[in-house]
């Protein structure tokens, strides 16, 4: 279980199996994003950390083992394509993103101590005495707050909704007051800006994604009574098929919008697609997408042009889905 406060939410509750993850990571890189992507799968949690557009860290923890770097990214891709994951994206300051990276790769000194059972003053005095660099993680079932320390001296707080390390303790302390609050003490090794390699620039993630997609396509469906190979129909994972048709549909819609509205049309399609079609591609979601896209598009084109674009998109959707 990876316990981290939520930061400033950029995207929550998305299905990573329905997103072209290498493309999304490249967009975060181009946008100089700082923050983290959290993947919650049925048996594991993955975290990918960006600092000013550099993918500095990745981790997948299933409770038994921890994968890091490319192994973690490959496992995250694989589990995402199974279609049962959840993706949340949170923005942080670059400094905080580095601290979170250091924290994830740090060592646990004390774990799961009941706050009401420990002498917190004594603990803090001990941290100071040992000149610990790391953090206190205070948490309940659904809330987490971090208090960062450098050489025994408190640096600041990070709690749900924080973007940077804060100097006020209110929210962090309110977690400590909740019934059942626990505390972990973690030690970290400081990580300086620019010291970490950018995993995105040193690996071909689109190729990795493609390999996983292809290997999933060629995997036979598990069957209790295997039939002779000649009679077995070709099976394609529904999640993979849906991810592919999504990508195809988005590319077609982008092309239509570019033709009608220019480059801003392509950007509008991408934005509204991400906003409205993160879940199932059903009629209600498609109608909401057309409505919102039409509304935005009317700022750069007339009703006639927008209507003909939306109609063309509707026809393309019928062919593809």
């Amino acid at each position: 279980m990876v316990l981290l406060p939520k930061g400033n939410p950029v995207k929550e509750n998305a299905n990573p199996g329905k997103i072209n993850l290498p493309g999304a990571l490249e967009k975060l890189q181009a946008g100089k994003f700082s923050g983290y992507l959290r993947f919650d799968f049925p048996g594991a949690t993955g975290v990918i950390i960006f600092e000013q557009g550099r993918l500095i860290s990745s981790l997948l923890d299933d409770g038994r083992e921890r994968l890091i770097a490319y192994d973690a990214i490959a496992a995250i891709f694989e589990q995402s394509l199974e279609g049962r994951g959840r993706l949340d994206v949170y923005r942080l300051s670059p400094e905080l993103a580095l601290s979170v990276h250091a924290l994830l790769h740090g060592d646990l000194l004390y774990k799961g101590q009941e706050l009401k059972l420990i002498d917190i003053k004594l603990l803090l005095a001990r941290l100071k005495e040992l000149a610990i660099t790391g953090c206190l993680r205070i948490y309940t079932g659904d809330r987490v707050a971090l208090i960062f320390y450098r050489e025994g001296n408190p640096l600041g707080f990070f709690h749900d909704g924080s973007v940077a390390i804060e100097t006020t303790a209110d929210t962090s302390m309110s977690v400590a007051r909740l019934p059942g609050a626990k505390i972990d003490v973690l030690t970290t090794r400081g990580v300086g800006e620019g010291m970490l390699a950018d995993l995105l620039s040193s690996a071909d993630l689109p190729a990795l994604w493609q390999r996983i997609l292809e290997s999933r396509r060629s995997e036979p469906e598990p069957s209790a009574t295997p039939a002779p190979p000649a009679e077995e129909p070709e099976t394609v994972d529904p999640a993979v098929r849906e991810a592919e048709s999504r990508d195809e549909l988005l590319a077609t819609w982008r092309e239509i919008a570019l033709r009608h509205l220019g480059k801003i049309g392509g950007s509008l399609v991408e934005k509204e697609f991400e906003k409205n079609l993160g879940g199932a591609l059903d009629t209600a979601a498609l109608n909401a997408f057309y409505e919102r896209l039409g509304k935005s598009a009317r700022l750069v084109a007339g009703h006639g042009k927008v209507n003909s674009m939306v109609e063309e998109m509707g026809r393309a959707a019928q062919e593809k889905l």
Binding site: L261, G262, I264, V300
Partner: peptide, 9 residues
């Protein structure tokens, strides 16, 4: 520059 290429440009 942002809306160049669109009908309103």
């Amino acid at each position: 520059l942002n809306v160049k290429g669109s009908p309103i440009g």
